[in-house]
Design a protein around this nucleic acid. Structure first.
Lengths: 216, 216
DNA sequence: ACGATAATAAAACAAACGTTCAATTAATTC
DNA sequence: GAATTAATTGAACGTTTGTTTTATTATCGT
């Protein structure tokens, strides 16, 4: 009734993170009890407190690492120097790929913000704002360069992000559409939405050519 | 310690509904206790059970009435016979207006589905699907008539709905933009997104003419 | 082989939860 | 004005919650 054979702190902590993201995504933060989480990991509830002082610490860790991962992914994917269209395309591709790959933590980071304390909420929102600022900069540059037609940069950025993040609500891998197909379609919807004239770079998608593309 | 002067069943029930929508939207269904809700209404927790047998019944009632209201609003707003552009414009206007007006119940209906029992979840999703089907029909008609350029009808419908519903996440009345301005901008973003050539009907918005509208 | 430490189990805590029940008073009906 | 019904209170029930404490065992460095 104590330490079990083969137990390893790092592995347990990783298992807790993953199980927590899954359970919170499915049932919600408040609905997930520490005992249920412990059972999912195959451990007693008290063991969780060796890795996370409180339940909220666990939630905050998941969110912080999600946002850090998102920003890091964008910094890797960001083109060093390119036109607004190419930068926007890179942003869309990175955003959709990241959010589909990390569905659970995306759900957590988007739906459970209200369960954070004021300070921690502020810190997460700061990261989010920094990430969204990148998109606004791209849109502004494109509008000033005359390659985009945008009425309101901030509003367009929010609309695009909501649209893209919404993928995780209905997308299930292995159903009608592949990730590449979804990404390609969202890319052309984005380009049309911002008023870009040409559909730059859909090279990754071996997709059936669109039946009606006259507007471009 | 019993019936209070001036107490009225109908008024209390309405107050419970409204307070519940607000509390659930702010703190989440699981985080809202029946005692907290009762305190908000100015009543004891036991009194709530005169109107709603269980907490989940209350949640389901809020969601069902939200969806019924949304569908009813669309049936009122739907043009009897008009082209796809006008029908799409009506859909967008109705959707945004309804969701901004009923921010709280929208939040509830979108975020708390997982707290419903299987049967009730099915019933709510059925209503939602019926509502979304209207949009898909408009998009399909427009694509077939050649006035829209759409790659994937279902995917475009989901993208539009996510984009429009997302308004409630950041929009706060009385800030930078008015409802009319937001609606007008979303309308033209929608029209561009579906590849419509002309921007039919933005007559309701006394907006500063967009600085860059070259694509239309 | 052994001491130190890492990892866990088991039991317990007070607090909060949804819900029920009997008692009590206001409003309505006849 | 008495009888009936509507609306609510206050107290209580058994569970479940997040968390703490203490004891116990596995692992690792030496």
């Amino acid at each position: 009734m104590a330490r079990t054979t083969g137990s390893d702190g790092e592995k347990t902590e990783a298992a807790v993170r993953e199980a927590a993201a899954g359970l919170i995504a499915r049932y919600g933060y408040e609905a997930m009890s520490m005992r249920r989480l412990a059972a999912e990991v195959g451990v007693q509830a008290a063991a969780l407190y060796r890795y996370f002082p409180t339940k909220e610490d666990l939630l905050f860790t998941l969110m912080r690492e999600h946002m850090e991962g998102l920003i890091a992914a964008w910094e890797m994917a960001r083109p060093a120097s390119a036109g607004p269209e190419a930068r926007l395309a890179a942003y869309v591709r990175n955003h959709i790929a990241f959010h589909i790959e990390r569905r659970h933590s995306t759900h957590v980071s988007n739906m459970e913000l209200r369960s954070l304390s004021h300070d921690r909420l502020t810190r997460i929102l700061r990261m989010r704002t920094a990430y969204e600022k990148e998109l606004r900069a791209i849109l502004r540059d494109g509008a000033e360069a005359g390659v985009f037609s945008i009425e309101d940069t901030g509003l367009t950025a929010m609309a695009l992000i909501q649209m893209m993040t919404g993928v995780i609500v209905w997308f299930r891998p292995g159903e009608r559409l592949s990730v590449a197909e979804v990404t390609a379609t969202y890319l052309s919807m984005t380009m049309r939405l911002v008023g870009a004239r040409i559909d730059i770079g859909i090279p990754t998608a071996p997709r059936v050519p669109a039946d009606a593309q006259r507007a471009l």
